[in-house]
Amino acid sequence: MKKLYSIAFALLVLLLLIQPSTLSAHSSGGEEVPTWFWKKERDNRQQPDDIPQPEGGPELVERIKRPVSNIILQQRYPEIVVLRGSTEENRVALTFDDGPDPRFTPQLLDVLKENDVKATFFLMGARAAAYPELVQRIVDEGHIIGNHTYWHPNLVEVGDIATLETEVQRTEDTLAEIVGYRTKLFRAPYGFLFNELVERLGEMDYTVVGWSVDSLDWQEDPPNIIAYNVLSNTQPGSIILMHDGGDWTSDRTGTIQAVQQIIPSLQEQGIEFVTVPELLNIPYQK
Rank of each mutant, 00 (worst) to 15 (best):
F186D: 11
V208D: 01
A188V: 01
N233F: 05
E203S: 14
L201C: 06
E272H: 15
L197H: 08
Q267V: 07
E268K: 13
S232G: 01
L185F: 03
E167S: 11
T174H: 08
Q260V: 01
I256G: 13
P223T: 00
S212R: 12
E165W: 02
F186C: 08
G254E: 12
V274C: 08
T249H: 15
A176H: 12
T174N: 08
R252D: 11
D247F: 14
T234C: 00
S212P: 09
D214P: 02
D214S: 10
L201Q: 01
Y228C: 01
N224V: 12
V168A: 15
T171N: 14
V198E: 03
I239A: 04
W218I: 08
N233C: 07
Y228F: 09
L201T: 00
Y206P: 12
H243Q: 11
D173L: 12
P236H: 08
V230C: 05
E177P: 03
V198D: 03
D217S: 12
R200D: 06
T171Y: 05
K184M: 14
N154W: 04
S238K: 12
G191T: 09
E157P: 10
V179Y: 12
Y190R: 09
V259M: 05
Q219S: 15
D217P: 09
V274N: 01
P222T: 10
Q219D: 13
Y228K: 13
Q257N: 13
W218F: 09
L231Q: 11
L185S: 06
G159D: 04
A227G: 02
F186I: 06
W211M: 13
S212M: 02
